[in-house]
């Protein structure tokens, strides 16, 4: 059964890129406002307000914020019951302290285009977090390189697992529902309404698309949930994937999340102008020859 071809136009990709930039602008703006004493709930609510005021009309999920060892999904948040649907993921009353790592994760939809991003930081300093964020660069190259080589998505995910093992990190994205490294994102109809229904903090329209993909994928031999298991043992499926490697070291977790565009014979990150790439460039980690590669 043939996998779907990439149906998005250049204009569509521009729309997705715009909303991904909005999502990262949201994370950066709120992160700059964060102060010790704020709770995860307060920060998540600020992110939601920001996105609404910038014209977001729906979401894949409402904003998440994790502080301290919750970034590494330690404790109750790490339990994997119900295939990983764990209410402890939802923003809690944990208060931010100095030098405590945090992760912000939001997935707004605007005019039918959805992004899903992850952003981490700290008020103060945290050497373990810095190291994790530096090392996260290798994963960004690894994933896109292996997809370009047309390795199966399960093999790519297993390669990520092996890199975690080499680095001495836990692959904490295994705590996400269905242990996903990535999930698919589809374009929604732009119906002009200012707001759409969310259930249990997940956008109904986006989750419905995911379910439709699941049914269609079962028929065609692919899965919209990309993990290390047999269900992902298929060639890279053209389309948009929100990829989210999430690393944990003792009580500190870090991640980024970006949209990966997979075409019939190529793959590329939707946007290189994202905070983590800018950070790697600032720190002199970004390899010199990638300009050619990315082009």
């Amino acid at each position: 059964m043939p996998a779907p071809a990439l149906t998005f136009t250049a204009a569509d990709l521009d729309g997705f890129r715009e909303v991904q930039r909005l999502a990262y602008r949201c994370a950066e703006t709120i992160a700059a406002e964060m102060e010790p004493g704020m709770t995860e709930r307060e920060v998540a609510a600020r992110m939601k307000d920001f996105l609404m005021s910038e014209g977001a009309d729906d979401c894949f999920h409402q904003p998440f914020a994790w502080f301290g060892d919750r970034t590494a999904f330690r404790g109750f948040i790490g339990f994997k019951h119900l295939a990983g649907f764990n209410p402890a993921f939802y923003p809690s009353n944990r208060r931010l302290e100095r030098n405590m790592p945090f992760i912000l994760d939001c997935a707004p939809t605007r005019n039918g285009h959805t992004a899903d991003i992850g952003y981490c930081g700290v008020v103060g300093e945290n050497r373990a977090l810095d190291r994790l964020m530096d090392d996260l660069m290798e994963y960004r190259f690894l994933i896109v390189d292996l997809v370009r080589q047309r390795q199966s998505l399960a093999e790519v995910s297993q390669a990520v697992d092996r890199l975690c093992l080499k680095h001495g990190y836990e692959p904490r994205h295994k705590a996400y529902p269905f242990e996903v490294l990535a999930h698919r994102v589809e374009k929604l109809q732009d119906d002009g309404r200012p707001q759409h229904l969310s259930l249990a903090r997940f956008g109904v329209r986006n989750v419905t698309e995911l379910l439709k993909d699941r049914v269609r994928g079962a028929r065609e031999g692919w899965s919209p949930l990309w993990n290390s298991k047999a269900g992902s043992d298929h060639a890279p499926t053209p389309g948009l994937w929100a990829v989210e490697p999430h690393l944990g070291f003792r009580g500190v977790g870090a991640k980024w999340e970006e949209l990966l565009v997979i075409t019939e014979d190529d793959a590329f990150w939707l946007d290189d102008d994202v905070p983590q790439v800018r950070r790697w460039k600032e720190r002199g980690l970004w390899p010199a020859d990638t300009a050619r590669k990315a082009a």
Partner: peptide, 8 residues
């Protein structure tokens, strides 16, 4: 690598 992690 192990030593580096320990230093963290």
């Amino acid at each position: 690598r192990s030593a580096e992690l320990a230093r963290l």
